[in-house]
Design a protein around this nucleic acid. Sequence first.
DNA 1: CCTAAAATTGAGTGATTACTCACTTCACAT
DNA 2: ATGTGAAGTGAGTAATCACTCAATTTTAGG
Lengths: 217, 217
Amino acid sequence: MEQQNFIHELMDATDQKLTPKQAQIIQAAIEIFAEKGYAATSTSEIAKRAGVAEGTIFRHYKTKKDLLISIVSPAITRFVVPFFAEKFVQDVFDQDEIEEIEPLLKNLISNRYQFVKNNVPLLRIMLQEMAFHPELQEQYKRVFVSKVLPRFKQVVDQLRGARQIGDIPTETVLRLTMTTIIGFLITRFIVMPDYPWDDETEIEYTIQFIRNGLKGI
Amino acid sequence: MEQQNFIHELMDATDQKLTPKQAQIIQAAIEIFAEKGYAATSTSEIAKRAGVAEGTIFRHYKTKKDLLISIVSPAITRFVVPFFAEKFVQDVFDQDEIEEIEPLLKNLISNRYQFVKNNVPLLRIMLQEMAFHPELQEQYKRVFVSKVLPRFKQVVDQLRGARQIGDIPTETVLRLTMTTIIGFLITRFIVMPDYPWDDETEIEYTIQFIRNGLKGI
DNA sequence: CCTAAAATTGAGTGATTACTCACTTCACAT
DNA sequence: ATGTGAAGTGAGTAATCACTCAATTTTAGG
């Protein structure tokens, strides 16, 4: 039901009007790709679950891979960009100087937490298929370098000025922050989704861990 | 060339004597599984690269999946167990009390760093295929809970006594430590293997990050 | 209501798949 | 040397694969 959001955003984002059957195809493909992986999924199975003839898939997508790309590509953008771009444009520039790292981390983690929570199958597909499709890796890289990296550096510099971050290279700060957050999300939603998580508490510990880890002594 | 180690250890561990052709099959399978994923790999391609008839594969492994399991299963054990077991039995019990977290982390990270460095294709296969094969997940869980978890808890308790770790639940300490270390290894060897890493420095920052993150203020 | 374009269909295609099996070759104990 | 079981072979098989296309149904403007 939350995927419906994604499908509508996919419509808006690409300006392609999706026919009802096309939306069913994408919905079914997301489900099955997440369950068994792209390579192990047959187009006949997608058609079956979508309640559609197999030929209909190929009317809209030239190849099976084309279908995958049309799903994962917008998902990458929607997952990566808000990491340190859109959402923070306001927060960063509303106040001339950032003096506290905590609200920043809180905002960032909570935001990505909600997105992942509503798009677990998409995250699974992203993680699985980026390994085997260089064009997806390149898109990730392109988006990250152009949209996320500059803002991140800016923020880190300001935080360093406010003595919130110790003597650690910016690239390393980025790596440690990202792996901790992504590690939390993957542990929470992919590795141990059934563990009785106390999410608020866990997020709070994660924020403190990053904060103290970056501050040094 | 480093995989050769793994193949020999696989021999010793399972007490199965591998014929030369069988070793070639495993070597080829590791390579191609890592490159294209299990589902996208055909047994004919494995046979071709191994320089072996396709029938030979099925002489030794009942199914293609059987071949996968016989590769990944020992790899899981060899990757997970040393995280807080074998290697630390001595270090932990030689001294009655552990008072410093740093040498512990240094030892742990360096050790897993070397293992992953020598077994990148195996790590790739593990990460990819554990998602789709519940029996692999269960083996991971079994090994982790029986071999790693108890010792880890013991160590954390001692470190807490020595005021090296703040007021954080043991499970959360485990999660944060593991994701940071595994995150580093995956970033280093899978996501950005071509980045000009200064490994020693990066390991040092990672240790300090975990240390300060867990200590609190 | 008509009609042309767009959407949908499902039987059909050649290629490829994991796996089998009757057979040959090999290693080695006697 | 010779017999024997294990190792290795590769042509063969039914199933399944991604994809095509001629025919049919649906949609929408006049």
